[in-house]
Computed example of a mutant assay.
Amino acid sequence: MTKITHGEVKKVANLARLELNDNEISNHAEQLEKILEYIKQLESINTDNIPCTTRAIEVINVFRKDEKKNSNCKEELLELGPSREEKYFKVPKIINE
C-alpha cells in the first residue's frame, strides 16, 4: 500500500476548507494510513455466503391489533382546545376569498 503523503492531506484539508499545521498534517496522515490498513483487512474477509444486512441486530416491530373503542370524551377534548364553536374547534381563517 502506498503511503499517504503530506501533499495529499493538504489537498483534502483544502477541499474541506480546513487549516492544518504541520503537526496536524502528520497526525492525519498517520491516522488515514491506519484507516486504510483496516479497510484492507476487511476486504480480505470472505463474505460470499453471508447475507446482506442493514443492522447488526434484527429489529422486529410488535404491533397490536386495531380495535374500535367507543369513547365519550368529546366534550373534554373540545375543552382542551384554545377556542371552540358549538361542537367544533374554532380556528383562524387562512384562505382569502
Rank of each mutant, 00 (worst) to 15 (best):
E76N: 11
D22Y: 07
I39A: 12
L77E: 02
K11H: 13
I95G: 08
E37K: 05
E75P: 02
K87E: 06
E97V: 11
T47V: 15
Y38R: 15
E97T: 11
K10P: 05
S26Y: 01
E19L: 09
M1T: 04
A29L: 01
A56Y: 14
E58Q: 11
S83E: 07
N46Y: 13
K3A: 12
N27R: 15
K40P: 09
E58Y: 12
N61M: 13
N70K: 06
P92Y: 08
L36H: 00
N70Y: 05
E24N: 01
E30R: 14
L36M: 04
V62R: 09
V59S: 15
S83D: 11
K65Y: 08
R84M: 08
E43R: 15
S71K: 04
L18E: 02
E19G: 10
I35W: 08
S71Y: 03
E67G: 01
I60S: 03
V62M: 06
R55N: 15
N21W: 01
V62Y: 10
K68P: 07
N46G: 13
A56Q: 14
I94Q: 09
F63Y: 07
S71G: 01
I50Q: 12
E37D: 06
V62K: 10
I50T: 09
K10C: 00
L15G: 05
L77A: 03
E86N: 13
E97G: 15
M1R: 10
H6D: 12
N49H: 14
D66I: 09
A13N: 00
L32I: 02
R84F: 09
K87F: 05
S83F: 09
Q41Y: 13
E58S: 13
L36T: 01
T47S: 15
P92I: 03
M1Y: 06
K10E: 02
T53R: 15
K65W: 05
V91Q: 09
M1S: 07
A56C: 12
I50P: 08
L20N: 00
Q31E: 13
K10I: 00
K74T: 04
S26L: 01
S26D: 05
A56D: 14
R55D: 15
I60N: 05
K11E: 13
P92R: 06
N14T: 10
K11Q: 14
Y88N: 06
L15Q: 04
K34D: 05
A56N: 13
E43W: 11
K68V: 04
K90L: 05
E30P: 07
E58I: 07
E8M: 04
I57V: 08
N49Y: 12
D22R: 09
V62I: 07
N14F: 09
K34M: 04
I25F: 01
C73M: 04
E8Y: 07
E8T: 03
I57C: 10
N49S: 13
V91A: 07
V59N: 15
C52A: 14
L78V: 02
